[in-house]
Amino acid sequence: MLTKRIIPCLDIKNGRTVKGVNFRNLIDAGDPVELAKHYAKHGADELVFLDISATLEGRNTTLEMVLKVAEQVNIPFTVGGGVSSIENVNCLLKSGADKIAINSSAIKNPCLINVLSEKFGSQCITVAIDAKRINKKWTVFMAGGTIPTSLNLFDWAKEVEQRGAGEILFTSMNNDGIKTGFANVALAKLTKVINIPIIASGGAGTVQHFIDAFKIGKSDAALAASVFHFKDISISELKKELKKNQIPVRL
C-alpha cells in the first residue's frame, strides 16, 4: 500500500540552512547535507530544499549543495526557489535533484509547466502554490507570498494539473508559522478537484495536526520545517503515532 509521506523542509541561503534550526550541537545544523542525512536516518520520506538565495553566486553554491546531498543521502529530494527556466531545471536534475518545485515562474508563464513536464516528465515537476483565504476566497500569491494575484487556488490547481504538473505543494499562508494545524478544508477540496498528489504545508504544530492533514485534509504528504528543526516533534515518533491512527506510513 502506498504510504503517506512526511517531508522536512530546509530553507537554504548560499548553501547553508537558515532560519529556525536548533539542534543543540548534535550536528552542524547549518550544514544542509548533515541535516538531510540526519532526517533520512530518522525516517523522513523525502526532503524539500527551498533556495532563498538572492544572488547568482548564492544559487551556484546551492547547486554544489544539491550535488553533495545527492551523493550522500539515500532518499529522494525536491529543490525549489527561484527556478524559472529549462536550464535551471536541467542543472538541478543533472546535479541529482529528484524533483523540482516551481512557483512564481509558473504564475508569470504558465506554459513553463507544459514545457518542463514534456521535457523532463511530469513526475519531477512539482508546482508550489502559496495561497491565502481572504473574504472566503483562496487567493494565490507569488514572490514568496508578497504579491497577490488574480488567481483562485482551486482554478489554478486544476490548470497546473492540466498543464502537466506531477504534484502540488500547497502552502496555506493563513496557517503558516502559527502552529494551529494545516488548512484541512481547503486541502480536502483540492483532492476533489485534482487527481495528482498533494503535499500539505503550513501550520504543523502537533502530532494531531499531521493526523488531521491526512484524515480530514486527505493529503498525500505533509511538509513541515520548524517542528522538526526545533525537535518539537521527532519524525520517527510522529510516524509511530500516525500508524497507531491507521494512517499508512513507512516505518
Binding site: 524533483k99 513526475q123 504534484e167 513507512r250
Partner: peptide, 28 residues
C-alpha cells in the same frame, strides 16, 4: 503519478536476497 513509498511482495529472485517481503521502496 504514484509518488512515494510502497511495499514489494512475492519476491522471487536472488536480486531480493536478504530482503523481506513488504519492504518499502520509492516509486514515482
Amino acid at each position: 503519478p504514484q509518488i512515494g513509498w510502497n511495499t514489494i511482495t512475492n519476491l522471487k529472485s536472488n536480486l531480493f536476497k536478504g530482503i523481506n517481503s513488504n519492504s518499502f521502496m520509492y516509486f514515482v
